[in-house]
Structures are given as structure tokens and as C-alpha cells.
Amino acid sequence: MLDERVLIEAKRQLAFSQYSITDIAEQLGFNEATNMTKFFKRHTDVSPKDFRQLCRMGLRQS
């Protein structure tokens, strides 16, 4: 349940903020951005960077 909450917040930050992935990782309590990247990819099958790009592409098309 905690992982789910962290994942939701990571997705929200990636989609709607200008914070760097490193800053988001720090805000969510990860020691290293690479740890967040591994966590995010394990749960979504995409990297945080790719997720952000996909969200931005989707927002532009709307």
C-alpha cells in the first residue's frame, strides 16, 4: 500500500511538475535517483524519464 502511494505521487510529480527526477526522488524519500528509477520501472515497465515524456506528449495532443 505504501509503494502504491509513492508510485501515485511520483507519477503526479513527473506529469505535472518541473522538478528534476533527482528532486522528485529526494522528496519521496529515496536515497538516490537511481533507486527511484528502479522502483518506478519495476512497477510501471517504463523509466521516469520516458513516463514524463509520454505525459507531455499526451498533454500537447489534447
Score class of each variant (00 low, 15 high):
residue 1 M to F: 03
residue 1 M to T: 06
residue 1 M to L: 04
residue 2 L to C: 07
residue 3 D to M: 00
residue 3 D to A: 01
residue 3 D to N: 03
residue 5 R to N: 12
residue 6 V to G: 09
residue 6 V to I: 15
residue 7 L to R: 04
residue 7 L to W: 04
residue 7 L to Q: 04
residue 7 L to P: 02
residue 7 L to F: 07
residue 8 I to V: 10
residue 9 E to I: 12
residue 9 E to N: 13
residue 9 E to K: 15
residue 9 E to W: 09
residue 10 A to H: 08
residue 11 K to A: 12
residue 11 K to Y: 08
residue 14 L to M: 03
residue 15 A to Y: 00
residue 15 A to E: 02
residue 17 S to V: 07
residue 17 S to Y: 08
residue 18 Q to W: 08
residue 18 Q to Y: 08
residue 18 Q to F: 08
residue 19 Y to H: 14
residue 19 Y to G: 06
residue 19 Y to T: 09
residue 21 I to K: 09
residue 22 T to W: 00
residue 22 T to K: 15
residue 22 T to E: 06
residue 22 T to Q: 07
residue 22 T to F: 02
residue 22 T to P: 00
residue 23 D to H: 13
residue 24 I to Q: 01
residue 25 A to Q: 03
residue 25 A to F: 06
residue 25 A to N: 06
residue 26 E to D: 07
residue 27 Q to G: 08
residue 27 Q to S: 15
residue 27 Q to A: 14
residue 28 L to W: 12
residue 29 G to N: 07
residue 29 G to I: 09
residue 29 G to S: 10
residue 31 N to D: 12
residue 31 N to P: 02
residue 32 E to Q: 05
residue 32 E to V: 01
residue 33 A to R: 07
residue 33 A to F: 03
residue 34 T to I: 10
residue 34 T to K: 14
residue 34 T to V: 14
residue 35 N to L: 05
residue 36 M to W: 01
residue 36 M to K: 00
residue 36 M to T: 01
residue 36 M to L: 10
residue 36 M to N: 01
residue 36 M to P: 01
residue 37 T to G: 05
residue 37 T to H: 05
residue 38 K to F: 02
residue 39 F to E: 05
residue 39 F to P: 04
residue 40 F to W: 05
residue 40 F to R: 04
residue 41 K to Y: 09
residue 41 K to S: 08
residue 41 K to P: 01
residue 41 K to Q: 13
residue 42 R to C: 06
residue 43 H to T: 02
residue 43 H to Q: 14
residue 43 H to M: 09
residue 46 V to K: 15
residue 47 S to M: 01
residue 47 S to K: 00
residue 48 P to K: 11
residue 48 P to S: 14
residue 49 K to T: 09
residue 49 K to Y: 08
residue 49 K to D: 05
residue 50 D to C: 04
residue 50 D to A: 14
residue 51 F to E: 02
residue 51 F to M: 06
residue 52 R to E: 02
residue 53 Q to L: 06
residue 54 L to S: 06
residue 55 C to D: 00
residue 55 C to P: 00
residue 55 C to Q: 14
residue 56 R to D: 09
residue 57 M to F: 04
residue 57 M to Q: 13
residue 57 M to L: 10
residue 58 G to T: 06
residue 59 L to T: 04
residue 60 R to P: 00
residue 62 S to R: 15
residue 62 S to I: 13
